[in-house]
Amino acid sequence: MSANTALAEKYRNNFLKEIEEQVEMGDWVKMCMQCGVCSGSCPTNFQSAWEHPPQELFMMIRAGKREEVLTSSSMWNCTSCYNCIVRCPRKLPITHIMHGIAEYAHRLGMAPKMQPTRFFSGLFWKNCTHTGRVNELKLSMGLYFKDGLGAGIKEGMKMKDVAIGLLKAKRLNPFELFGGHKCKDQKGIQAMLKKAYEIERSRKAAKMAG
């Protein structure tokens, strides 16, 4: 049984309770009073990027729409501008809840695979934890080639003037593509992260089982 089906089984009809227990800051969801100030304040909503604004997501959680919420791309679109937190009359930490739901969906393997924010987050984390330094060239190339070779070349050509400019200004080193620079104690960093992973993994596993 996958983690997803196991948890769905565990909470059955009570998706709100599942969110409260599994999602960071999820216990705030019940306090939403549906005023819609968060939705109105969200800068991404001006471009209709959100399938479901926060207020609606909260309502869907209460209505038990588990599949729709967890597979939604909405919470991945949050830019962490904190407008909603500042304005929420009920003081809900909406930004954190969005990230919490996104993380939970990712944990269950239900998050949309190629959602750009999610993809970039993974890419960035892998990139910077590998050497302890962010390799900007590899990071941007990775993002360019996200949707395949053709799309990547096209995207690269579009940005070539910027890249040449950066080269001339010595802000871009093409040799970074091979290895790249590292932090002083690469091993130490990785050992630290390993320990952190372990702690988190055991905590979440306990939560999901408990």
Binding site: L16, K30, M31, M33, Q34, M59, A63
Partner: peptide, 14 residues
């Protein structure tokens, strides 16, 4: 009072 009910887990559906 409303907030207290939400804390107690009463579901409000518009």
């Amino acid at each position: 009072f409303y907030r207290s009910a939400q804390e107690k887990g009463v579901i409000f559906t518009k």
